[in-house]
Design a protein around this nucleic acid. Structure first.
Lengths: 148, 148
DNA sequence: TCTTGACTTAAAGTTGACTTTAACTTGTAT
DNA sequence: ATACAAGTTAAAGTCAACTTTAAGTCAAGA
């Protein structure tokens, strides 16, 4: 099965211009062309594009993704480097999840804060509560917010 | 306790120019000035800046953060809107965590893939395995990557 | 053959969030 | 009184990752 840039873009849910841009930047060295110069994406290319998508979601730059693709094109000599890179990105994603979990805790505190404000009619009620009056789960969050 | 822009920036771990930029964009209407025009940050302002940081981490744009700050300056009439916004951001962060968890699963598959390639000396071994030969936990991930 | 929609490239434009620069002012320490 | 680090502004510059534009080419259907 072969796809034009528009068809592959639709399958991936991205704009055709994005795929052309990636190609121009050297991220798609595996894509072949028709005799007339039109890009012909194979099914295997879809998998490459999914890997690119995955690495993008880890926060990796296109430049570094390009390096990974280049390594992959090199063949089996680069397996070790690729493994190392994947493990590094895995750790990076774990760190991002931890970070977002902290952000989530802060938002849960703020939700409680505004729910309490709503019930009492004013933010001064939750704002002026002592630490002891706060639900225990929000104490550390408030201390951090206030720099204590 | 009062802080200059440089002192507050250091406390937050950001560049002074960032705080000046936020101020210029209207995100810091609460910051007061000395008679000579120098910004004097209060301890309460540190808390505002932490809230701005938190909202930034949720992926909210500075424009929308500005709206939230403006609502907060409005006073108790906007409690309900602020609560709604916080809940929306909470859901957004949960979705981001779910997304990253999927990305993590894909990276774990890739880690297994390259470890297997390393052991056998070639990526063709993990690549050509049938679904049944794969560890069960990676089957769905590989199907998704290949678009099956 | 002709039309038409989708393809091609190079180059310029966009966006958001800063950072840097230049020219000038403030405030503290000697 | 003077020096000097750190403050001020407006305006321009930077960066990554696209998107848009313009001018032209390809390929499938009537």
């Amino acid at each position: 099965m072969l796809y034009t840039v528009g068809e592959m873009a639709k399958r991936l849910g991205v704009a055709p211009s994005t795929l052309r841009y990636y190609d121009k930047e050297g991220l798609l060295p595996f894509v072949e062309r028709s005799s007339g110069g039109i890009r012909m994406f194979k099914d295997a290319d879809f998998e490459w594009l999914q890997v690119i998508e995955c690495l993008k979601k880890t926060g990796m730059s296109l430049t570094n993704i390009k390096h990974f693709i280049e390594m992959s094109m090199q063949g089996d000599d680069t397996i070790d480097e690729r493994l190392t890179l994947i493990i590094k990105q895995k750790e990076a994603v774990k760190a991002q999840i931890d970070d977002l979990s902290k952000t989530l805790k802060t938002l849960e505190f703020k939700e409680w804060y505004y729910k309490t404000a709503k019930e009492t009619g004013t933010t001064s009620v939750p704002r002026n509560m002592t630490l002891g009056e706060l639900p225990e789960e929000y104490r550390e969050v408030r201390k951090a917010l206030r720099g204590e």
